[in-house]
Amino acid sequence: MTFAPPPETAAWRHLDARTGFEVVYFRPQHGGHRIEGCTTAVEEGVTWAVDYVIDVDPSWTTRRAEITGRSAAGSRRTTLEADGTGRWRVDGAPAPHLDGCLDVDLESSAMTNAFPVHRLRLAVGAGSPVPAAYVRAADLTVERLDQQHYARIADDGPHRRYDYAAPVFGFACRLVYDESGLVLDYPGLAVRVL
């Protein structure tokens, strides 16, 4: 399975869980991509903004993520670096709790759900667990997100569909992607507007 190249830009409106917006820009880099984006939101009466620059290699495996967060409590910044085989550093220090993760997953972002779909290239009927380096929106805490699972189901015309589950959050839904492998509909969280 192959995907079309990503567009120069994409945007999502966040729904239900928060009110907000995300805008992202894709730039080719060393056979992979540099992805620059920003998410702003109001969630449970708290405002926050998260800026990110994420580098992925040609297989869409995360290699580096620079994340800056702002809220009424102040500004924070964190940098994640990965060797592409599942070893990570957070702000320069080894992060063995992330061993085996190949993707960064930003709590604030619908876009980062593109990484495992591109990287795995699952056939219809196939599924895979996808542990990730999970970055919280409010304070940029980096945690291991285990038990995520993606399973590809039959396409709906040009749209690719995946059953997604994150049992640690008690959450499951059907994600719909476009021909570029970007989320169009993330029930309860976001919808693509561009």
Results as ranks from 00 to 15, higher is better:
Q29I: 03
G31L: 04
H33M: 11
R34T: 13
R34I: 13
I35G: 07
E36A: 10
E36P: 01
E36H: 11
C38V: 15
T39N: 08
V42Y: 03
V42Q: 10
E44L: 11
T47I: 09
T47L: 08
T47F: 13
T47C: 11
A49T: 15
A49R: 15
A49G: 15
V50C: 13
V50D: 10
V50Y: 11
D51F: 13
D51P: 01
I54A: 00
D55R: 14
D55A: 14
D55I: 13
V56Q: 05
D57S: 05
D57E: 08
D57C: 04
D57R: 02
T61F: 02
T61A: 13
T62Q: 01
T62A: 12
T62V: 10
R63F: 01
R64P: 00
R64K: 06
A65S: 08
I67P: 06
T68M: 03
G69Q: 00
G69N: 01
R70Y: 14
R70K: 12
A72K: 06
A72M: 06
S75F: 03
R77S: 11
R77Y: 08
R77L: 09
R77H: 14
T78K: 01
T79H: 00
L80R: 10
A82N: 12
A82I: 08
G86T: 07
G86L: 07
G86W: 06
R87W: 11
W88L: 09
G92I: 02
A93C: 09
A93D: 10
P94F: 06
A95P: 09
A95N: 10
H97V: 13
L98E: 10
C101N: 09
D103T: 14
S108C: 15
S108F: 11
M111Q: 12
T112N: 03
N113C: 08
A114G: 04
A114T: 14
A114D: 02
P116G: 08
V117Q: 05
V117A: 05
H118N: 08
H118L: 13
R119S: 08
L120I: 05
R121T: 01
G125Q: 05
V130D: 06
P131H: 03
A133R: 10
V135E: 02
V135G: 03
A138V: 15
A138E: 15
D139G: 07
T141S: 05
V142T: 15
V142R: 10
R144V: 06
L145D: 06
L145Y: 05
D146R: 11
D146S: 14
D146T: 12
D146Y: 04
Q148L: 12
A151L: 12
R152T: 05
I153A: 09
A154D: 15
D155G: 02
G157C: 00
G157W: 00
P158V: 13
R161W: 04
A165Q: 12
A165T: 15
A166I: 06
A166G: 01
P167Y: 04
V168Q: 10
